[in-house]
Structures are given as C-alpha cells and as structure tokens.
Amino acid sequence: MTSGEPLLEVRDLRCHLPGDHGVVRAVDGVSLTLGHGRVLGLVGESGCGKSTLVRALVGASAPGAGVSGSVILAGTDLTAMPPEARRAFVGRHVGMVFQDPMSALNPVVPVGRQIGEAVRHHLGLSRAAARDRAAGLLEQVGVPDPGRRLKHYPHQFSGGLRQRITIAMALSCDPALLIADEATTALDVTVQRQILDLLAGLAGDRGMGLVLVSHDLGVIAGRADEIAVMYAGRVVEHGLTRAVFARPRHRYTEALLGAIPRLDAPPHARLRVIPGAPPDLADPPPGCAFAPRCPAARPDCLAAPPPLVAEGPHAHACLYPADGAEITAGARRREGGDAG
C-alpha cells in the first residue's frame, strides 16, 4: 500500500436502517480521514451510530440498510466494488475485534483453526503453515503455551484470553487497519487495560492504523492520536486527542469530558451528568441534534444541523462553541448566512 494517500478516507457516509417508526438515520453524513499508522478514537454514547458506522465501513451493514457515500481504503474505493469482492478485500486488509469475544468465536471450532482459516483463504498458506502462523499470533497477543492451546475450544479460555484470540484472528492476514468496536467493554477493568495496551502496542509495532470505538472517553484518552466524537449519527468534533481534551469546542464534547469522574473532586461530590436523552434517530430534530440538551443553545441552533467546520486540524460542528465562543460564533453566523 502506498503512503501518499491516507489509509482510510470516508466521505459523507450514510446508513439508514428500516425501523418500526420509519427510517432510522443511524449514520447521517460522516466524513473522516485516517493516516497510516494513526490511532483514532471514535467516541459517543450508546445508540449514537458508532457500531452502525463500523459495519457500514466494512460493508457488513444489516440487510435492508440504505448505505450511501464512499469508503476509500488505501486508494481503493470499497463502495465501488461488488459485494463479494468487497468482503474478500476487507477481510484481507481490515481486522475487526468486537465487544463480546465469546459470541464472536465459533464454540465448536478449535481456536487455532479459527485463527488460521482466513490466512489459508486470503494468503493461500498450507494447513501446516497456517497453524504455525496461528501459534505465532497467539504468542504475540500474549496467550501462554500457544502450541498446545491451538487445539482448545473457546469455552476453555477466560474472557481476557478469548479477546486476545479474537485479536489474533483480526491480525492473521497482517491488516493495514484494525477496528476494535467496544473491544474491552465486556471485560474486567484490569483486563481492559491489558487489552488496550496490547492493541495500541500492536498497532505501533506493525505501523497499522487503529480505530478504537468506545462509549468511554477514558478508554481512548491515553492511546488515541486523535479523537472523533459522534452524536446522533454525525461526527460533531474531530481533533488531536490533546487538543480535544484541553479545549473541547462542541458543547457535547465539553459535557462528556465534564461527566468523567475525577480523583481530585471533593468526596461525595455529585457526578455531573448530561441532562435529557439523545434524540430519536427516526425523527431527528431539524437543527443541531444536541440543541435540546445543550446549555448554550440559541434559537438559530434549531434551524439546520451545523456543518463540521475545520479550524486547522481541529474540526467541530457547533455554532456557539465552548471556549472563545463569542468570536467564533459571530464568524460562523456570517458564514452560515452566506452559505444559506
């Protein structure tokens, strides 16, 4: 893969799912760019469209989903490929790790075979070579005694080891991009940390792009180079991790950061929560989706969804962003008026 272009480029990706009360706009115009070897944290609360976005990225959307926009992986436009070819291409170049390792593993197939099967199909390795590779991968992800463990079944491993096995599966074809969708959510806190360190370490060692999807900013903070915050099917803020933490611009990001419990808070202080609930994606509000919960919302926030506007490497979709709000808001109002 060449290095001139970004590893992953997503343009105006939409995924609309059929629902009981009309079409659910689960992903509604997401654009993202990820460089080679970069770690992106994709954050948002449950139901904001993170997982739907991930599925749409790899062409595994639910049947009946209306998907539009383009996904370009290292110069190859996936959305222009026929479905079977796309599945094979994504399977070869993108590794996926999911939330629940037990249900992601076939209970009646030995783990060695599950790790080696993709290698045999995509790289044409012999049975013996695939087994050796599977043993090597198990060793890399920290499963002790890999040679013997290859023959074991998923139920014979602990939760943390199972997730290590699914990571070995995801790495088996040496992917350029690894997507971990809530990969540590189902695990104990101590195991969570080990798995995150493992993922970040593997991405660094292999020069592999990594997308960490989580509802938990704390999970992502220390490992991601950049952060994209999703709300109601859109990316509302995207920037370098340090910049987003130091100076969140979107009011939703600000509220999310404020909701993280702090060790230096006085004892028995109430945890801050975001009042209200995310909007119904089958019937989203006409303006900014966060406006009904936003402390800084003004009447024009309710008119139309604000576009994602870049200020250098830091982009946000807020008319009255936090920190220096007045100046930017004025500039934005004029921009909006010209465009509209």
Binding site: V58, A60, R87, A88, F89, V90, G91, R92, V94, M96, F98, D100, S103, A104, L105, N106, P107, E117, A118, H121, H122, T166, M169
Partner: peptide, 12 residues
C-alpha cells in the same frame, strides 16, 4: 449468530 457475522467480516 455473531460468530457467523464475524466470519463474514473476515472475508471467508
């Protein structure tokens, strides 16, 4: 089942 979907995302 999930494991069938994960097998599909691996391009088998």
């Amino acid at each position: 089942e999930d494991f069938v979907r994960t097998a599909a995302t691996r391009g088998l």
